[in-house]
Amino acid sequence: MEQLIDWAFIVGHVNYWLFIVLMMTGLYVVVARGNLVKKIVGLNIFQVSVFMLYISIGKITGGTAPIFPVDLTGHIEPDPSIVYSNPLPHVLILTAIVVGIATTSLGLALIVRIREAYDTIEEEDILKIEREMTAEDNKEYGAAMGGRA
């Protein structure tokens, strides 16, 4: 007889769903917010939540960090009784974190340049300025073509 609520399933999955909530919060900030800096913060939250998902893949219940015990001379002393968590996701996420900070720094540098060029870092204001630029271009170049710049 199957249970109405499969508790083992829920306990085993609830943390995935929490990661998803975090991810979606981050994604929401990216797509919904107009402040350029805040978008980057949202991107960070989104990515860090994905990293958590990765790391949780590697976790084994009762496991420990994948570093072998060593003696004083630096030689490894293997201990078969210890269960180690899967190190591969850790490696992937180390790489991904670095990629993340690289993206963040580039994004921020772009924001600094945008502020200098547009005097604002609000998407709405920027769009307004760009629409005006487009309208001007249209006046100058578009009339004959009946098109949009």
């Binding site: 960090a65 570093i67 060593v70 630096g74 180390l94 670095v98």
Partner: peptide, 8 residues
């Protein structure tokens, strides 16, 4: 090699 951390 022995503890957390590395070049990055």
């Amino acid at each position: 090699d022995f503890s957390p951390g590395g070049g990055f």
